[in-house]
Amino acid sequence: MALVYEYHVFISYQRSSPTVPAWVRNHFYPRLRELLDDLVDYEVKIFLDDQVPVGGEWPKVAREALRRTRILIPVCSPKYFIDEWCMAEWRSMAKREELAGLTTVEMPGRLIYPVIFSDSQNFPDFAHERKMWSLKSWNLHYPQYQDTPEYLDFHREMERVVEDLVEVISLAPPWRPEWPVETAAPAQPKTSKLPRF
């Protein structure tokens, strides 16, 4: 096993959503990869779960990739926070922040870099404690969205995200073999604010 990081970024998202996975694959991941690659002098490595080969042990591969990734980018939607896998990924990185001493006012944790796909009103309290980058205005998952004038605004916003990410990635603590990968029960959803009929 390598004694260093393998990935710069691990993209965490709710996989059973009808829209989030398509948006991540069609828009977020490709722009993140190309824009990061344009700004740095190293080969950018981003873990996305579709890189697990057919027949591969998905949970084992994902856990090892998370252990060997510098930062986590959760793509946040209300159902993200009730998905057991997503919460395991979030809590694993939060525990790493604790172990690395990144939970004080002087050393605020930045190993979790949340982006908002939708809503945010119904996120749990622990999520609201973190500053998040909202991409709600550009959350159309259709491939043809790239052909609209509005997509240029998304591209410019992603440029700003990536400029910030370059610094965050560079500040990740040195790799340790004891970085935890936890399994956690999903957070309880908040009561809906929509009326029941």
Rank of each mutant, 00 (worst) to 15 (best):
L140D: 08
W138F: 15
P143N: 03
T103W: 00
F81M: 03
K136G: 07
L99T: 02
Q121A: 12
F117I: 05
N139Y: 07
D83L: 02
M132F: 12
P114R: 00
F126D: 14
K131P: 07
G101L: 01
E89W: 13
S120P: 08
G101C: 02
R96Y: 06
I116S: 01
P114F: 02
Y142W: 11
H141F: 15
N139S: 14
S134K: 05
E129I: 06
A100P: 01
A100K: 00
D83Q: 01
K136P: 05
Q121Y: 04
A94S: 08
D125W: 12
W85L: 11
L99I: 05
H128I: 08
S118Q: 10
C86P: 11
M132G: 09
R96G: 02
F126W: 14
E89Q: 15
W133I: 15
L140C: 09
T104W: 02
L111F: 06
A94N: 04
M93T: 15
S92V: 12
R130G: 01
Q121I: 10
H128K: 15
D119P: 14
S92M: 11
L102N: 04
P114W: 01
F81T: 04
F123W: 08
E129Y: 04
W133K: 07
P143R: 12
T103Q: 08
P108T: 04
W138R: 03
V105M: 04
W138V: 05
R110F: 06
G109W: 02
N139V: 09
S137N: 11
F123D: 03
R91V: 08
P114I: 03
A88W: 00
E106K: 11
M87A: 01
W133V: 14
Y113N: 09
C86K: 10
F123A: 05
I116T: 13
M93R: 10
S118I: 07
L111I: 06
P114Q: 02
Y113C: 10
I112N: 00
K95E: 04
E97F: 11
A100T: 00
Y113A: 11
C86D: 09
V115I: 11
I82C: 15
P108F: 05
L99A: 07
D125H: 12
M93I: 14
E98F: 03
D83A: 09
Q121M: 06
L135P: 04
S92R: 12
W138L: 02
T104M: 02
E106A: 13
D83P: 10
E106G: 07
I112A: 00
W133R: 06
A127I: 08
L102A: 02
W133L: 13
N122G: 12
F117K: 00
M93V: 15
L140H: 07
P124E: 06
F117S: 00
T103F: 00
E89D: 14
F126I: 15
Y113E: 07
K136T: 13
M93D: 02
Y142N: 13
L140T: 09
A94I: 09
N139C: 10
F81G: 00
L140Q: 10
R130F: 08
L135M: 12
V105K: 09
K95Y: 01
